[in-house]
Structures are given as C-alpha cells and as structure tokens.
C-alpha cells in the first residue's frame, strides 16, 4: 500500500450489513481489489456482492495429472526394458499392470498437485505480519479497506451506518 493510503478494518455482526456496507463502499468508488472480506464461514459467492475470482487451480491439477501419467507410463512401460527379466510367461509390459500403475500415479499426482496448487494459489504458507482481526473466527465479518485519505470520513460514515461493531486501524499480526 502506498504511504498516503489509509487502511481500516471494520467488523460486522451480520452478513446483510456487510453486504450493504460493501455496496456502499463500491458507490464511494472503492474497487473490489481494495477490499478484503474475512469471515469464519465460507459465504457463497456473490453473497456479499462481490464477483468471482479467477483461479488457475484446474490448470495446475491438469498439469500435475499429465506429469503423473508420464511418471506412471515411465515406470510401468519403460523401466521393464531397462533390465529385461521375464516373469511368468508375461510380456515385459502387460496392459493390466501398466494400467493400474499409470492410473494410480496419475491420481497421486492429481492429489499432490491439487494440494500444492491451492497452497500456491493462496500464497501459503505466509506467516508474515498481515492485517487481521481475531474476532473473525468468532463469527464477525471483517472488511479490510484501503483508500485514499480524502475518503476517510465518508468511509467511516458508511461503515457506521451499516452497524459496524468496530472500526479501527488493522492490527498487523504475525500469523
């Protein structure tokens, strides 16, 4: 945030108030990317009047799946040829075992890439000091707003008008 920006945190009891406050902040000209809403419950998209965010997770998973598939194919179809040993009259690479191995490795890669992907997407782990308020996990809805100083009064007004329980400077907490 730039130096002459003000950041505020406002806590609300009710989601309706929060949604209203966000709408009002929008009308004040504060865009979505200057607001962060923190809740203890996953609210449905648009419940608070904000648009959906684009996520690259499916692509990460897809890439993971392809990598897993390739590993699986390598292990099940290539390695038997690196040191050829015959077993039980089977061909060195049989479809059923190769299918099982390829499948399982693909699934493993999907799982791992999903996990890593979501951490990547969320910038986790990020323990560094971040604006936060502990009341969030007690059911309060928090809006974190950044705006230029000239909107200070208006923002406070809007927030108060929407029954904000608390308005104040956000605490920078080492999470």
């Amino acid at each position: 945030m730039s130096e002459n920006e003000i950041s505020l945190v406002a806590l609300f009891e009710k989601s309706t108030d929060t949604a209203k406050a966000i709408d009002d902040l929008h009308t004040l000209g504060i865009p979505d990317d200057r607001m962060v809403v923190m809740t203890d419950v996953p609210y449905p998209e648009q419940a608070l009047g904000r648009t959906r965010e684009w996520s690259s997770l499916p692509y990460i998973v897809l890439a993971g799946a392809i990598v897993g598939l390739l590993i699986g194919l390598f292990l099940s179809a290539i390695t038997p040829h690196l040191y050829r040993l015959d077993v039980g009259g089977h061909p060195p690479v049989g479809f059923p075992p190769a299918a099982v191995i390829t499948f399982v490795f693909t699934m493993m890669a999907i799982i791992v890439s999903t996990f890593l992907g979501v951490l990547w997407e969320m910038d986790f782990p990020s323990f560094g000091p971040a604006p936060y308020h502990k009341a969030v996990t007690d059911g309060q809805l928090a809006i974190l707003i950044e705006f230029s100083p000239d909107l200070d009064d208006k923002v406070n007004q809007v927030l108060k008008a929407n029954q904000a329980d608390y308005i104040g400077e956000p605490e920078m907490i080492s999470l």
């Binding site: 962060v36 609210y43 608070l48 959906r52 965010e53 699934m107 799982i111 999903t114 979501v118 969320m122």
Partner: peptide, 26 residues
C-alpha cells in the same frame, strides 16, 4: 505454523472450496 497464515478471506475460502471439490472427486 499449521494454519499457514489463514485469515479467512473470500479468496482463501473460494480456493479451499475448489480444492476440496477436486479432492472429493479425485
């Protein structure tokens, strides 16, 4: 340490949901 810096922002919830859906299917 384990919560990795979770704050409960909308984006986090959204992605978590997304990941859990993929997990459930996978």
């Amino acid at each position: 340490v384990l919560s990795l810096g979770w704050r409960g922002t909308e984006a986090e919830w959204h992605k978590l949901h997304r990941a859990l859906s993929i997990f459930s299917v996978a």
